[in-house]
Design a protein around this nucleic acid. Structure first.
Length: 634
RNA sequence: GCUGGCGUAGCUCAGUAGGUAGAGCGCAUCCUUGGUAAGGAUGAGGUCACCGGUUCAAUUCCGGUCGCUAGCUCCA
């Protein structure tokens, strides 16, 4: 324990390694303006001062996650205070700090509009100017229950009810406002220097669809005005990378009203798709996979047997054929299983890796649709791997390596999550335990950091998920490895073992891209539309300066075309600056400007994306380097 | 699916305090042949998302539907 002498002369004890955030009550009265908590070894201890394990003091700044949380969390209290001033009777739910800011959930008779945000912001400004100290209060559970019941804060009452009987309950007070809160906070409201309310949204109480939908207001705050401005600028910049915007500008794909969630791919989008698939096929061939294709429509009986009919029905499209019920596949596994079961297998074939670019359809909720990231019709780069129990760990590690190889190719940063048994799980507890342990073991042996997502697994098995970030930092699940001990059972899959007897194989489902659609969306945002040459829809654009070069332009075009290059000639009667501008907007990697000089010398004036004018280069050597770059997929 | 916002030309958007609409870009044609981010002229293009209601009159007001969107929920 450490003794801290407070300004009023009293001494309080704090344990090492904790942040001194609770001293507020001691110092707030009268000292708030200075926001000093006390002194320790002659040094000033502020609310944002941390006592390290060795007893030394460490100032917690906004750059520390803890300091940032205290800062934003305080701002959320200020927002709640402003809202309750402007809209009396509004009940408070929860209001945490989050990644880029904070939010607070309200239950109010008043429906907030975007115009209200400005009013609330102005009221928040008043509270900040008033520089109210934040005072911590402690109550027993019963006292807190009575207190919030009196105030009609039914959500807070519900939160307190969930706490243990002997819990010590902390509240933070600022001016006339008081809120149930564990802290931490900054010492006074005046600490907030830059604040902005971002948007309005609905959110279910406690994240449960069955509960009331509350009104959530998102905001963000920073210690400096400039930091807020920088943040808003970055957000604007990030929006320019949005794949929905770039997808339209570059004519990659569209989604029309005639088919919500069912994307159309334009020729340029198909180029990227096909290149990705070609890369995928090449890689999978060398990694020991064999490709199959299974039907999109299969009968109801199959889906009943697989369990999808009972566990995934609300997401499945169905249809009648000759008065028999069929379903459009939402997953590829049953098809792959039928392929497996179509002939007897020996353990000598294992691991048997069957891959499939499988087109699946899922009835996703309309509100969940999001460009190519979340659609109702998508192609999974699926594989089903059949193996011996003894091969599980190595095979999972191999899949992790394959996914890593693919993501590194594009320079992606990703994080991994392990999702465990959900509520609607099928199969025995023992099977779930065995499969979950197997996944965990593989992750540990790979030394891969991961986060556990309890209850987030698929209904047939636990999974490892690979998450990638989009332009504004939202993460999307792409790759996944799922261990399934259920379907082999349901379909009575077998292999002949060394002992000549029938045994049950282990099955893995896995995707690496995840879905081609989502992966293209992530890629588009990652590159901001400037795809590497091997993926670029147009790799080379030839720009003749006048009509005199058209013949030469076509000759070059044909030569590149014959070598498999995607090349276009801009022979409109526009000035060269104009043609360059357009080709730049299209993010074409290489522009070949040709005028009389180049025509005479058999050269091209090369303009490289991101690097500008490269001067005259020999066409043959340009072509050779280009072809090599494409072949190496760099 | 839920809550809020939005829906005007291919795109980005303006507009009508209720009297059937405009700009820029793009597109077409013509002039221009110009050396590294926008040359000029003319023209075509809209059942103002859809369906109802109010009104002499609705793109505008009201209701519903569909779609998009920010989140929530759900997921690759």
């Amino acid at each position: 324990m450490i003794n801290i002498t407070l300004k009023d002369g009293s001494v309080r004890q704090y344990s090492k390694g904790t942040t001194v955030l609770e001293v507020t009550e001691d110092i707030s009265r009268g000292l708030a303006k200075k926001a000093l908590a006390g002194k320790y070894n002659g040094k000033i201890v502020d609310l944002n001062t941390k006592l390290a394990e060795d007893g030394s003091l460490e100032i917690v700044t906004f750059d520390d996650p803890e300091g940032q949380e205290a800062y934003r969390h305080t701002t959320s209290h200020i927002m709640a205070q402003a809202v309750q001033r402007l809209y009396p009777g509004t009940k408070l739910a929860i209001g945490p700090a989050i990644n880029d800011g904070y939010y607070y959930d309200f239950d109010s008779e008043h429906t907030f509009t975007p115009e209200d945000l400005a009013k609330i912001e102005a009221e928040m400004e008043k509270i900040i100017k008033a520089d109210y100290p934040l005072t911590r209060k402690v109550m027993s559970r019963q006292e807190a229950l009575d207190f919030f019941t009196d105030r009609g804060e039914t959500y807070k009452v519900e939160l307190i009810r969930d706490l243990p009987e002997d819990a010590e309950i902390s509240l933070y007070e600022q001016g006339e406002f008081i809120d149930l809160c564990a802290g931490p906070h900054v010492p006074s409201t005046g600490r907030i220097k830059a604040n902005k309310l971002m948007n309005l949204a609905g959110a279910y109480w406690r994240g449960n669809v069955k509960n009331k939908m509350l009104q959530r207001i998102y905001g963000t705050s920073f210690p400096k005005k400039q930091e807020l401005e920088d943040y808003l600028f970055r957000l604007e910049e990030a929006k320019k990378r949005d794949h929905r915007k770039i997808g339209q500008e570059l004519k990659l794909f569209t989604i029309m009203e005639e088919g919500p969630g069912f994307p159309f791919f334009f020729p340029k989008g198909m180029v990227i798709r096909n290149e990705l698939e070609a890369y995928w096929r090449e890689l999978h061939r060398t990694w020991g996979y064999q490709e199959i294709k299974t039907p999109v429509i299969l009968n109801r009986q199959l889906w009943e047997r697989s369990g999808h009919w009972y566990n995934y029905r609300e997401n499945m499209y169905t249809t009648l054929i000759d008065e028999e019920e069929y379903a459009i596949k939402p997953m590829n596994c049953p098809g792959a299983i039928l392929v497996y079961a179509s002939e007897p297998h020996s353990y000598r074939e294992f691991p048997l890796r069957l891959s499939e670019m499988g087109l699946v359809h899922r009835h996703e909720l309309s509100g969940a649709l999001h460009g190519l990231m979340r659609v109702r019709s998508f192609t999974q780069d699926d594989s089903h791997i059949f193996m011996l129990p003894s091969q599980i760990t190595d095979e999972i590690k191999a899949v992790i390596d394959l996914v890593d190889t693919m993501y590194k190719k594009f320079g992606f940063e990703y994080h991994v999550e392990l999702s465990t048994k959900p509520e609607n799980a099928i199969g025995s507890d023992e099977a779930w335990e065995m499969t979950t342990n197997a996944l965990e073991k593989a992750l540990q042996e790979k030394g891969m950091p991961y986060k556990v997502n309890p209850g987030d697994g698929a209904f047939y098995g636990p999974k490892i998920d690979f998450h990638l970030k989009d332009s504004i930092g939202r993460t999307w699940q792409c790759g996944t490895i799922q261990l399934d001990s259920n379907l082999p059972e349901r379909f009575d899959l077998t292999y002949i073992g060394e002992d000549g007897q029938k045994h049950r194989p282990i099955m893995i489902h896995r995707v690496a891209f995840g879905s081609i659609e989502r992966f293209i969306a992530i890629l588009t945002e990652h590159y901001a539309g400037a795809f590497p040459t091997w993926l670029a829809p147009v790799q080379v654009k030839i720009l003749p300066i006048t009509d005199r070069q058209h013949e030469y332009a076509e000759k070059l075009q044909q030569e590149l075309f014959a070598a498999g290059v995607r090349v276009e000639v801009d022979h409109r009667s526009e000035k060269i600056g104009y043609k360059i501008r357009e080709a730049r907007l299209e993010r074409v990697p290489y522009m070949l400007v040709i005028g009389d000089k180049e025509m005479e010398n058999g050269t091209v004036a090369l303009r490289k994306r991101g690097e500008g004018d490269q001067g005259a280069v020999d066409f043959a050597s340009f072509k050779a380097e280009l072809l090599q770059e494409i072949a190496e997929r760099v």
